[in-house]
Amino acid sequence: MNSNDFIAKIAPAAIRDWQSSGVSAALTIAQAILESNWGTSALAKRANNLFGIKGTGSAGSISMPTKEYRGRVSFTVNAAFRKYKSWDESVTDHTRLLLNKRYEQALRRPGREAARRVAAAGYATDPNYANKLIALMDKYDLYQYDAEMGEEPMTAEEKKQFEALKETVKKQAERIAELEKRAEFKMPDWAKEAVKAAVNYDKKHPLIQSPVQGSYDFYRLITIMYRRGLFNKSDAG
């Protein structure tokens, strides 16, 4: 899987969670790239864990060696990491983790700022963590995925208002379509005799001109009038 394919696979879930929770999509994608080495790490392959989150996941846990830092000195230890059934579950759990109070300062922040705040909150012990994330965002223009849904996600109230507006627009569109349909309604066979009688009622003063088109209600009214004998050729003056 090349870089474009990896990003394309992760982006929909990242954008979804940016819209619903305020976790930057650019941050999510950059962390997935960095933590999983583009999905090629043993943890990503064996546990569908893209973010190096420790603990127990939906499919249990797996013990793996990991590099940690004490200051700028690195060392390797074994740790239990969360195991998932899919990458989508991994993205969802990453969002859930960042909704924790510890990372709240990173929420509703664009990519660069979110990266700095997540690093400052101690997501990783690597002192260059934020810079590495931002470098990935810059190189692959990951900021576009935050812009996908606007600079900031909608609040719950804004989403409610937006859904109400969409419903109103939908109803208006249906009403307009119905009116246009009626305006373009062609003369039905059952109305032809009545329309002809109305047109020929009086050559000098016909009841109606010869309409090319009329509404359903128009043809219905003319037909009822005709069938009730409200205009007949014999009545013409």
Rank of each mutant, 00 (worst) to 15 (best):
A13L: 06
A13Q: 13
I15H: 03
I15V: 15
D17F: 05
S21M: 07
G22L: 08
V23L: 15
V23R: 08
V23E: 13
S24A: 12
A26N: 10
A26F: 11
L27Y: 13
T28F: 02
A30I: 02
Q31S: 07
A32K: 00
A32Q: 00
I33K: 11
I33V: 14
I33A: 13
L34P: 03
E35R: 05
E35M: 01
S36R: 05
S36M: 00
W38A: 07
W38P: 04
W38S: 07
G39H: 05
G39Y: 11
G39W: 06
G39F: 10
T40Y: 09
S41T: 12
S41D: 00
S41L: 02
S41N: 10
S41G: 01
A42L: 11
A42N: 15
L43I: 04
L43V: 00
A44L: 01
K45D: 12
K45M: 11
R46M: 13
R46S: 15
A47H: 07
A47M: 04
A47W: 08
N48I: 09
N48R: 14
N49Q: 05
L50V: 00
F51D: 00
F51R: 03
G52P: 00
I53C: 08
I53H: 02
K54G: 04
K54R: 10
G55F: 02
G55D: 01
T56C: 05
T56F: 08
G57S: 05
G57C: 07
G57I: 06
S58L: 03
S58R: 04
G60S: 09
G60F: 10
S61I: 01
S61C: 09
I62F: 02
I62R: 00
I62S: 04
S63D: 14
S63A: 14
S63T: 15
M64S: 15
P65V: 07
K67G: 03
E68V: 01
E68H: 06
E68Y: 12
Y69P: 06
Y69S: 10
R70K: 15
G71N: 14
G71R: 13
R72N: 15
R72Y: 14
R72Q: 15
R72I: 13
V73L: 12
S74R: 06
S74P: 08
S74N: 12
S74L: 03
F75I: 06
F75D: 03
T76C: 03
N78T: 14
N78Y: 14
A79Q: 12
A80T: 09
F81T: 08
F81H: 08
F81M: 03
F81W: 13
R82Q: 11
R82H: 06
K83L: 03
K83E: 05
Y84S: 07
Y84F: 10
Y84G: 07
Y84K: 01
Y84N: 01
K85T: 14
S86K: 11
S86H: 12
S86M: 09
W87K: 07
W87P: 04
W87C: 10
D88M: 04
E89K: 00
E89C: 02
E89P: 04
S90D: 12
S90M: 06
S90G: 05
S90C: 07
S90H: 00
V91M: 02
V91K: 00
T92A: 13
D93C: 06
D93N: 09
D93R: 04
